[in-house]
Design a protein around this nucleic acid. Structure first.
Lengths: 122, 122
DNA sequence: ATTGAAATGCAAATGATTTGCATTCTCAAG
DNA sequence: CTTGAGAATGCAAATCATTTGCATTTCAAT
């Protein structure tokens, strides 16, 4: 079966989205209303197939986004708001890592913590 | 009261450690055995005072480490093992972020995902 | 149609962390 | 020294996001 209608629908939602989504957001957007565990299982499936990626922050749920995108994040430690940006310098390090750690890199996570415009002066 | 004996003990454990520790590891190391919630509350307190930092990965618990250290991580998506390294290029980006997002950076998180030496060929 | 493997729904379990509340501690004021 | 208020602690229960077990359904191949 593999890419069932739920999974396809969920993948579409994620690929269309301009920002990373949580499982709950995906669940709510989905008009055919699968079960919550189906959403989680679909997300796991899609991530294993490398069609989507996910990231967790200090608290709150994971965020999911299409593997076609490469995001980095600004995570507000006050309100939890995330913003995305895509300027990336990580590749400079990959060779260094491989040689020194024999660690096979598949991805990297890079985000700044701090205060967003709203929380900055509260 | 502020820096009570539990909190001081916990801070010492973290500062002495050569690697980031989980709440549970800290709890077990602590010879005076405070309550688990005391450990969590102490960690929260110490992080608010900027004496320690923490990072979460995709699953599993948070890791805590001294603010005097600046770590980056290699997170194995297979076994969850973390390794640390400290070569850092993030500061190149901070100015860019500040100008473009009005986001006040307090910290950044950067880690590679992949397979560690053991899991690579399993 | 029949069958077997995989996907789904539902409810209960899980793991890490947090919370409410009663108790205990600390330390400055009397 | 005693006291009393505010903070810290212990304990048990709650919480949140996610996962799991199990019974049922679906689908594709025979």
């Amino acid at each position: 079966m593999e890419l069932t209608k739920w999974r396809e629908e969920i993948l579409k939602i994620i690929e269309k989205s301009k920002k990373p989504l949580t499982a709950e957001e995906i669940y709510k957007i989905n008009k055919f209303k699968p079960n919550f565990s189906t959403v989680y299982r679909a997300l796991k499936f899609l991530e294993e197939k490398n069609l989507i990626k996910s990231i967790s922050f200090d608290k709150g749920p994971k965020y999911f986004y299409s593997s076609k995108k490469h995001y980095h994040f600004l995570y507000c430690t006050n309100c939890g708001k995330i913003e995305v940006f895509n300027k990336c310098i990580a590749s400079q390090l990959e060779n260094f890592i491989y040689k020194n750690f024999k660690f096979q890199i598949t991805d990297h996570v890079f985000y700044f913590k701090g205060l967003c415009e709203n929380c900055k002066e509260g």
